[in-house]
Design a protein around this nucleic acid. Structure first.
Lengths: 208, 208
DNA sequence: GTCTATAGATTGATAGAC
DNA sequence: GTCTATCAATCTATAGAC
């Protein structure tokens, strides 16, 4: 198996370190040392540390967003065609399934799930804004469809519940696989079971 | 109204800045300048930046934990006395009500709600561990009681769902009051309505 | 207790040889 | 493209006068 090129090695290592220790606590020296490349390579290939973070986001977030948007638009088109509002669970799964698939270890996304889980609430404004700018479009589309699925609820109520759901998802993306918050907790559950339980949790909360 | 003393001014300013920008991105210079005190005062009164963070946590977290533990122990005692398992919603409210009360602007806790919301998933290990060490006892007690309330569910399942609930709560503590993730969303909801909706969301998800 | 001044370490970024 | 060397700007922490 051939070594990935320098640029890819930097992205992969940065993804891991940003996810585990955060953007500002991870120095370019740590990244380049662990990646086995020269310190100056980051600025040669990306221009700045912030641009490196953008590259880390974009590598997996652009394909992920494409999938989420295609699925959401599919549900929207079907609702329009049939003249009936979409189902809550169907709409939610357009978003939850591709997102929670990041939990699978064979998804090829490494530590990206932890980075996604933390970014929305990262204390660093740079991280937050770069991430939010990449997902706000999808979230607005999701909110529109959820409002169609729940026509008797106000947009404010649906948006509030969507925020609850996003919080549960983010938290799970971070902690799943390291024993949960209290340790030794996810031993008996497969990743697919976790995903189904979380989806059920969100659907019940959203409909209730 | 008399000015608070130097130590209190430092704690209050640090609480706000740690909550808004994170522990490592907030320098002691920024804190002391905004608080109107000398840079060296932090190390005189607290010994180190990390000890200041502990003081910020402890000011509100110790009283909050006392309330949560008293309520949880009250429910535990009543269940034991009556010989019947406690109710899911009653157990959850022992934890959610005192915690979500942080959302009230007149609670005297300033930006503490945001700090709490971010700390559990903070990318900075120092922040995470200091915070987790202060809440893990309460969370274990809560988990024990939830398992009593849901005797037909495995401890792993209950723990997993508790993590979903904590994620939803953390997220809400961070974003409530600034228009939610997508902006302009919580205009029509009072804080008490938000708290009831979140409690209902969690109860439905936990029981479902 | 409060202040000035500074030590000592680390950071992101870059210049310039190869 | 990759490397060494270094700059300029930060940071926490502390020594010592008042």
């Amino acid at each position: 198996m051939a070594q990935p090129d320098t640029k890819t090695r930097i992205i992969s290592t940065a993804e891991e370190l940003f996810a585990l220790a955060g953007f500002h606590l991870t120095s370019l020296r740590t990244i380049t040392t662990q990646a086995g490349v020269n310190l100056a390579a980051v600025n040669y290939h990306f221009g700045s540390k912030e641009a490196l973070l953008e590259a880390v986001f974009d590598r997996h977030l652009i394909p992920l967003n494409d999938i989420r948007i295609k699925r959401l638009e599919g549900v929207a088109a079907q609702a329009k065609k049939s003249g009936r509002p979409p189902e809550v669970e169907g709409v939610l799964r357009c978003f939850t399934e591709p997102t929670l698939a990041l939990l699978h270890r064979d998804s090829g996304t490494g530590y990206f799930r932890m980075l996604v889980g933390r970014s929305l609430s990262d204390p660093d404004q740079t991280v937050r804004q770069l991430f939010l700018g990449r997902v706000s479009g999808v979230l607005e589309l999701l909110l529109d469809l959820l409002c169609q699925a729940l026509p008797h609820r106000s947009r404010e109520s649906v948006s509030l519940k969507l925020n609850f759901a996003l919080g549960a998802m983010s938290h799970t993306l971070i902690f799943q696989g390291q024993g949960g918050l209290l340790g030794g907790v996810d031993k008996g559950k497969s990743i697919d079971e976790v995903i189904e339980m979380l989806t059920n949790f969100i659907v019940k909360g959203m409909e209730g």
